[in-house]
Amino acid sequence: MTHHPNTDVLIVGGGLAGLSLAGYLQRQGVEPTIIERVPEWRDAGYGIGLWEDGLTVLDELGLLDAARGRAADPRGFAVRAGGGELLARASLPPAQILLLVIHRADLHAVLRENVPSDWIRMGTAPEDITEHADGVTVTFDDGTTDEFDFIIGADGVHSAVRSQCFDDWRKRESDTYVWSLWAEQDADVGQDMVSVWGPGSEGFVARVGDRVGFNLAARLDSPPEPPGRAALRRQAEAIGWQLPALLDGTDDEPFFDRIRDVTCEHWHTDRIALIGDAAHAVHPISGMGASLALQDARVLAQELATSRSDRPSDAFANFESRRRAAVTRVQRMARVEAAITFLESDSLRRLRNSIVKHTPLFDMFIKRQARND
């Protein structure tokens, strides 16, 4: 569709997907309004891996070097059994950057620097969204009302846009909980990105400059009281290797959350579209959630810029058509990966570990991730 300087676009959610989309729209001469429900930006979040699809977006936005300055470029990806036994290691080509490991807050800061601050309204959420033939009327929680040509819901797994404007979606609450801690430490964890498999749990460890970060995810019968540091201690000790020492090395309060995924039968109406976790939150075991969000922004911006129709719905439909298969594949693989990783049976874990150790399956998996097949 043809953009005009006075096109009024509302992006609900100032996360990775929303900020990436704003960066692309800025290049098309569009100045979107971004609303974010929290009153100030937070430094919490997971450590994430960005594979080639996500790196492509950063490169196109001119942000790859800035992201690399805050990230690690691991040369290998290792998997260990509880206690530390090395099961497999896959090397990444030294001549290519196929993977960056970065804390979500650092990636968010890089994307935020690319968007004018006066486009962003903090501490604001949509209270009522009414779509009509010529646009969308939004009443905000401060009582103000405004009109927009179209709206993009980039407001995550708990999306207000999805809840108000779509009824063919499902949010699944997992029995798995996740903690994340990133702090300056001198622990010897090597330069690889490491996944350590415990009973019904996984630790993810990576060094980024002076900091060592670890995520720990575990299946629990009942949720601990946030931030659940006592439960984190029990899980770290059950996994072993360097995780107890890493926990000893910082008094910081961990980021803590419950894992959820989202599936939607449709990602758009005539003038409203969902992107990122609002449309398709995936289990973080996939390591692909951030890359999916960034690619959503890229493809939607392309369709908005190149559509010959004046109706946003045509661009939205093309966007969904291009992205649906990739998202479905990642969601399907994430469910398989979670089932394999979070095994609780001792005998099944021994069998899994033996297969990983004595076959090339892990190396094949990493190469597939790198190619985004």
Score class of each variant (00 low, 15 high):
residue 73 D to F: 01
residue 74 P to Q: 04
residue 74 P to T: 10
residue 76 G to K: 06
residue 76 G to R: 10
residue 77 F to H: 13
residue 77 F to W: 14
residue 78 A to M: 09
residue 78 A to C: 12
residue 80 R to Q: 08
residue 80 R to S: 07
residue 82 G to K: 03
residue 83 G to M: 05
residue 85 E to I: 03
residue 85 E to M: 03
residue 85 E to D: 12
residue 86 L to P: 12
residue 87 L to A: 04
residue 88 A to R: 10
residue 88 A to Y: 05
residue 90 A to Y: 05
residue 91 S to R: 08
residue 92 L to D: 05
residue 93 P to M: 07
residue 93 P to F: 02
residue 93 P to H: 09
residue 94 P to C: 07
residue 94 P to I: 05
residue 95 A to T: 10
residue 95 A to C: 01
residue 96 Q to G: 07
residue 98 L to E: 13
residue 98 L to K: 14
residue 99 L to K: 11
residue 101 V to A: 15
residue 102 I to K: 00
residue 103 H to T: 10
residue 103 H to Y: 07
residue 105 A to Q: 07
residue 105 A to V: 07
residue 106 D to A: 13
residue 106 D to H: 09
residue 106 D to E: 13
residue 106 D to G: 02
residue 106 D to K: 01
residue 108 H to Q: 05
residue 108 H to P: 00
residue 109 A to D: 13
residue 113 E to F: 01
residue 113 E to I: 07
residue 114 N to R: 12
residue 115 V to Y: 02
residue 115 V to M: 05
residue 115 V to G: 03
residue 117 S to M: 09
residue 117 S to E: 15
residue 118 D to Y: 02
residue 119 W to Y: 04
residue 119 W to N: 06
residue 120 I to D: 03
residue 122 M to C: 01
residue 123 G to P: 08
residue 123 G to H: 09
residue 125 A to L: 13
residue 126 P to E: 02
residue 128 D to L: 14
residue 128 D to A: 15
residue 129 I to L: 08
residue 129 I to C: 04
residue 131 E to H: 06
residue 133 A to H: 01
residue 133 A to K: 00
residue 134 D to F: 00
residue 134 D to N: 13
residue 136 V to S: 00
residue 136 V to K: 00
